[in-house]
Design a protein around this nucleic acid. Structure first.
Lengths: 186, 186
DNA sequence: GCCAGCATGTAAGGAGTTACATGATTAT
DNA sequence: ATAATCATGTAACTCCTTACATGCTGGC
């Protein structure tokens, strides 16, 4: 069982029969904010493995020959066991921008500042998208847990934005100091 | 060029000649807080690739036949170009715990709370380690940028801890509500 | 003498990405 | 008609991890 496999089982645990395409769309609208959204090809590959293991059942329907997957009893057992008994791994973060800052001595501060500002805009966009997702979640008791994660995500990306702004300010003030040093001939 | 390759070049850009072993140690003490720390085997494989590409030079020295690597002029050029011209990718997060919360409807709230508390402890430990690293960084102008990243990391993991606590409280209050519902016969 | 830490690798495999390839349906 | 969206897959590859394998050196 791969992590993505469990994630797909989890999405199916909300009770609906979904196609690979639909699962991918849903992952893009939810998992992608705090976890990876697997590419289509992996979704299909994974679903086929889950089917082979008897954790999901398939029904081909419609003229478009859409395969709809549904969580089997065995699938639910495996999923619940995983959630309950396997302690979650610590989160893994690959903060490419932080790496750039770490090596900041090699570029002009302006380069770093531009990259931080781009990051800030990215956070803004993401927060807008998250807010849109959150709207579809509130007021339906079926989505309490996803809504909690959405709340957490809002806090998370807001903090991320704040941190980027603070770093930008710190770099800008350093640059100013250097300018003053130059002016005063130091 | 792999991301890990650039990371190693970056570590070497601070001017010291380092062995694979030393690079791994340093990565464990720095990169691992905000980026992945590559396993030993990958460090050696990567260094060999960098050497083949002429981006680092090697000197075998000492009775222990330690190979020490140093950044070449070409290596520095490649690194600086990457830092300056390749816009950093957005950070990727795999928050396994958030995934568990997302699927919270499948387990008892107590399970989730226990996992959140474990996460909180993990954050605490990490913050202690980070503080220790930070101490070695301050007051030496060579480490200004790593120190900025360490500051950011402190904020980051503190926010992470706060979020975990808040979620724990939310789950606990929900459980209480249900208990009251039961008591009053609802 | 022996264990912890220093030091370097090889081999195999797993998870995930990218590129490629195809075809049906719906709305304009 | 034609473009966007729905829909499913295969093949190749990359990055990374895990497990294995070996040997030196310094301190107790």
């Amino acid at each position: 069982m791969t992590p993505t496999g469990y994630a797909l089982l989890g999405l199916l645990s909300f009770g609906r029969q979904l196609s690979g395409y639909e699962l991918k769309q849903w992952a893009d609208a939810s998992l992608r904010f705090f976890y990876a959204s697997p590419p289509m090809s992996q979704v299909y590959a994974e679903l086929d493995r889950l089917r082979a293991a008897g954790l999901v059942t398939v029904k081909t329907s419609g003229a478009r020959s859409t395969k709809r997957y549904r969580l089997s009893a065995a699938g639910r057992r495996v999923l619940v066991r995983w959630l309950r008994d396997e302690p979650p791994e610590p989160p893994t973060l690959k903060h490419h921008l932080a790496l750039r800052v770490f090596f900041g001595h090699l570029v002009e501060p302006e380069v770093l500042i531009a990259q931080l500002e781009a990051h800030r805009r990215w956070c803004d966009e993401l927060l807008v998208e998250l807010a849109a997702v959150k709207e579809t979640l509130v007021e339906d008791p079926a989505w309490v847990y996803p809504a909690l994660v959405a709340d957490w995500g809002e806090t998370y990306f807001t903090a991320e934005r704040t941190a980027a702004d603070r770093l930008t300010a710190q770099l800008a003030s350093e640059t100013d100091d250097n300018d003053k040093d130059k002016e005063t001939g130091r």
